[in-house]
Computed example of a mutant assay.
Amino acid sequence: MIHDHIKSLGLQGLAVHAGDPAIFEMQAPGDTDSGWEGVQYGRVIYDLLIQDDADRKVSGSLRVMAAYTDIDMLPPAVRKLQEAFDTTFFTDGEEGLTIATTWQKSEPVNVKIGGGTDMEVFGTILYFDVYAFPAKRYVPMDAVASLAAYIRSRCPDVWVINDGMIEDGNPVWKPGTSVPESAVYVRLEQITPGSFPSTHACTWYTARLWVHVISASYDIANQILTDISYALSEAERFPMDDGSPFFIGQMQIGQGNSPLRDGQMQVQGQYGILREMQDTQPMNIINMNEGRG
């Protein structure tokens, strides 16, 4: 995904290797590699690292380096790369994972290479934070998928990230410039035993969910949050997978929260799961004899 996205930018002045623009993951081929066709600069090298993060502070990092021997070619390439990866979402449908990249900082890198005649290379490394949005399903009943489905029914013009790939099949999405213009993601923070008393037939659980609304416009994001919160407040519930209710006990909106890292709306409530009935042994036949007087 990352390679294809960089290639689609049409960066000027890139060298050619094996018939393609010089865009490489991790490292470039050596100077004597037969794939080089003429000059070996400019080039772009990227490195994507995704890691588990229980606190969801940052899920990984992306580094992209652009390097040219012509210093005039570097600034426009850096501007394109920063714009292309700042608040941009990439979805891998097979892996069931969406990631978002946000620009953090850029650093210049200038080196001299060569033997008898040194050649100066001018470069910039762009650093991006990466946030993961996995399309996880939780069993036996999925409060995340159920709330995502409810939001989808209320906001049909919004991309629900939990669904995976956008309907048009485009793996790259950027708020405000792509269709649809806004997106929503639902994630699970925790599940604990419910406060409702469980019975022989049903076990109750409490789930705390977070709703992320991503939009290029603060006003649009706020309107989506308002629509969802009003609907949930009025209904006081939403349907689970099997049609049973998820009872909403608490809901709050944190406008100052990061839509990528934290989510702006917390929804907490309870739902019941029917217990699997165990087969019982048939009752033995009881003979009753009448007493004689």
Rank of each mutant, 00 (worst) to 15 (best):
V58Q: 14
I2P: 08
V39F: 14
R208G: 12
I253M: 10
I191L: 03
V39I: 15
Q266G: 08
G30P: 03
T206S: 07
N162H: 10
V160G: 06
S178K: 10
D31W: 11
E107S: 11
T91S: 11
G42Q: 02
V44D: 01
I45A: 01
I23K: 05
M240H: 00
Q40E: 07
D142F: 10
R137G: 03
A201S: 12
D262Y: 08
F238T: 06
R137S: 07
S34A: 15
G13E: 03
D52G: 11
N110L: 07
S198T: 12
A28H: 02
S8G: 04
L260T: 06
E95P: 05
M240I: 00
I191E: 08
R292P: 07
I253S: 13
L81E: 01
S229E: 12
I6R: 00
G115Q: 08
I71W: 00
G169D: 11
H5C: 07
M288S: 15
M165F: 01
P75R: 05
Q223M: 07
D129I: 07
W159R: 04
T87Q: 11
P197L: 10
Y131P: 03
S258G: 01
V44I: 10
A216W: 08
E290H: 11
A143M: 07
P175H: 04
I214W: 00
D142K: 09
C155R: 15
K105F: 08
